[in-house]
Design a protein around this nucleic acid. Structure first.
Lengths: 199, 199
DNA sequence: CAAAAATTTTAATGTAGATTAAAATAATGC
DNA sequence: GCATTATTTTAATCTACATTAAAATTTTTG
């Protein structure tokens, strides 16, 4: 999970661009951020971005692919580490939040999927669906193994994912708050999940 | 809470416009929706919208004012109806969701506050802050009266609000799902709030 | 260090979509 | 039914970016 040391200069710069873009998009919205905004963050010129992405739509697309990939990693890690459904759910939340408020962040909120072009949109939607499904599977596993109280996994998943997805809306990189989120969120979001008497 | 019957034609039409705009913004994002998109929803021409709002920025602003007002109503009602902190929290979630998925909906997600002009932005941010504070007060009240387990009210509030705010992202007006959300969400979001042994 | 490749900038161009003004239509009051 | 007022449309204009091409600069390689 460490950053690959043998990344090419191109890949490194492109990653910086995606992070800067994510920051801008999360803060000012898609329309609100011009390519100039993004490039200014990097001490570059707007035209320079075109060396890395074909156009603005692709910039968003890449941000979303990156977000999806980071989410996927958190999920895999959690499934590997947790010894029952409940633990896997808790760890996933923890790992995902670690990424979002940590140095890999910020991660782009997928607010603008509809403005992607058809093929990109379909791809991102599919990744997004897969991600939700995986989380619902975790919840089901927990219900089966008795670590999670029986519940509507679809809705519970939506609730938890919503909380997480919304974080970048109010978290703006304050280190103190990062620690608070890391500490509190996994507990808050799973508190009601355990079987009766487990708190 | 019923729709005032003596609304002027202007006010009715303007309300329709705000709802159409909210639908578009939630679905296609701010940038993704042109004024033509909004007007098409109503069988109007884009230019006609300018009879009701000064410009696009003001359209968003009005949508957000409306969202804030509806949220405020749900909060007031809940505080009036609930007999302890826990009940007030549960009722607020319930009432707010009723509004969002009911016929007053859709309600605009406040995703684009940053693209509002300074005075509007400040006003909406202030309303938003007040709303969060009111909810945190409810949580504190619950902790005091013993109906809610001691917790970080700031983070817990953020978590719950995030879940709610994200709903319009995945709910697109399917009646069946509306019922499911209404039934499940209040319970899901408050399940972990009660004191140990209360489930 | 020179030549080649990679990266960035400068300076245009293009375009969608916001905005406006004037004209046309519809609603209302007398 | 006529005059007045409210609403909507048609037909331009205007502008902020996104985008592109060519030139300049920086980095790499032998």
């Amino acid at each position: 999970m460490a950053t690959n040391a043998d990344e090419t200069r191109f890949e490194i710069q492109r990653d910086r661009i995606l992070k800067a873009a994510a920051t801008c998009f999360n803060q000012k919205g898609y329309s609100g951020t011009s390519l100039k905004d993004v490039s200014r963050h990097l001490g570059l010129t707007d035209a320079a971005l075109y060396y890395y992405v074909k156009n603005k739509e692709e910039l968003v697309y890449q941000c979303y692919l990156r977000a999806a990939e980071l989410g996927r990693r958190a999920m895999l890690q959690a499934v590997g580490d947790g010894h029952n459904g409940f633990e896997q759910a808790r760890l996933y939340i923890r790992y995902h939040i670690d990424i979002m408020v940590g140095k890999e962040g910020p991660v782009a909120i997928m607010s603008e999927i509809p403005s992607l072009k058809r093929p990109h949109r379909n791809e991102v939607l599919e990744l997004s669906r897969q991600h939700s499904s995986k989380f619902e599977e975790i919840l089901e596993r927990g219900i089966d193994d008795g670590s999670i109280v029986p519940c509507d996994v679809r809705m519970t998943g939506n609730a938890i994912m919503g909380s997480i997805n919304w974080i970048p809306k109010w978290y703006h990189g304050k280190a103190v708050m990062a620690a608070e989120i890391r500490d509190e969120f996994p507990q808050i979001l799973t508190r009601g999940l355990g079987p009766p008497g487990s708190q």
